[in-house]
Amino acid sequence: METLIIIDYGSGNLRSAAKAFEHVSKDITVKISNKPKDLLKADRIVLPGQGAFRDCMEGLSAIDGMVEALNESVIQKATPFLGICVGMQLMASRGMEHGVTAGLGWIEGDVIPITPNDTSLKIPHMGWNELHYLSANNTQDNRHFVLRNTDSSENFYFVHSFMFQCTYNHNCLAMTEYGGLIPAIIGRDNIIGMQFHPEKSHKAGLKLLSNFLDWKP
């Protein structure tokens, strides 16, 4: 049986993510862990995240060996990886929330404030919104494995005030619209990140989690 590790670094509601994975698959052992050595043995890794970029990066770095274990398992061993919300943003080169903070640097880009062109729009961007698939993913046949069988009419639950501005468009798989386009799904190789919360996005979100478990990048 495969083991999925959800990284516990003091950020957010881990139970919901764990339960959502258990809900979509009986063939996986879901473990919430703060131990770097667990990452090295994991078949899949999920990095959740809530709050500010800097606090999350500091929380992750505060666990001795965690960032090194992430780099080893995700970058060197190519273990399939999912980042959720700030967990996705941490893959960036830099975060600009509460000062400039270096991220994991896995996908080039900066995490910057959302600035909707309509100033009556509320911040945070909070609630259900749909995805706009970018060029390489805009037909079912071409779509990234994790996004297969998704439909552009489906909605996902977002709650964030900052966004991942990718340096290279090809790292951005889907956008959402909120007074301008906001990256909603980014990825490369064995790495994928979702700005929204798939574990809180009802059936549409659970389908993505199920796809992630089947993904063999």
Partner: peptide
């Protein structure tokens, strides 16, 4: 809350 979060996948 625990019992709800086990089965309900919305905020």
């Amino acid at each position: 809350v625990r019992a709800t979060a086990d089965e309900v996948f919305i905020p």
